[in-house]
Amino acid sequence: MNHEMIIHLVRKDWTFQRWTLAFYLALGALGLAIIQLAAGESAFFVGSILLIAAVMGVGIHLIMATVVLERKEKNLAFVMSLPVSVMGYTSAKILANLSAFLLPWLALLGSALWLIRSSQGMPDGLEPFTVIVLGELAAAYVIMLAVAIVSESESWTVLAVVVLNLGFSLFLYWVSHLPEIGDHIEGPVAEWNRTAVGLLLAEAAVIVLVLVATFALQARKKDFL
């Protein structure tokens, strides 16, 4: 694999998506500011929605712009005319997207945790729930990215986005109604019990398995363009 070329491709995607990243980071920061500065339940609700929208938005935007559109607008032929193999290209796409997604995701995760711990009005019990929910968003993002790369299809990618976003609402409902999680959300202490840790590990396992499957499926492809 041509590592130097992979770095060039990652840098290229980052350069093209810098304003997109900045926009979603600003949106996430606005959500956090609303939660912090404006007291009350509705401020928390609006801020949280903005925070989640920022993380979801950056993920979908990056996948559509760097994977789906690149193929649709026939830029892929230009990229593949450079000294890079299909596996190199796959590595570059995963690295560029994951790093670009993780930047706002980690910033939002860190800020959210800091807010929960520092804010008087917010119970520390919210911490596991927040981490699990953001973990689901990361896992869903990796699945969407894998579908876009492997299927090479705009339709399949859009379907994955719709299904996973619907799934997120169901996941929120399901997790918040699990007694081991829901009963501690408003508690004064972060309750990292077996269910909470198990959910996080399951999300991490999904991410790893999907990434391994993506490379395996890409390696089997005989026609790439």
Binding site: M1, N2, M5, E73, K74, N75, A77, F78, S81, L82, P83, V84, S85, G88, L225
Partner: peptide, 16 residues
């Protein structure tokens, strides 16, 4: 990869 370092490819399906 080694070959592409020395080959130039342009096609009607290639867009910048």
């Amino acid at each position: 990869i080694q070959a592409k370092k020395r080959v130039g490819f342009a096609g009607e399906d290639l867009r910048l």
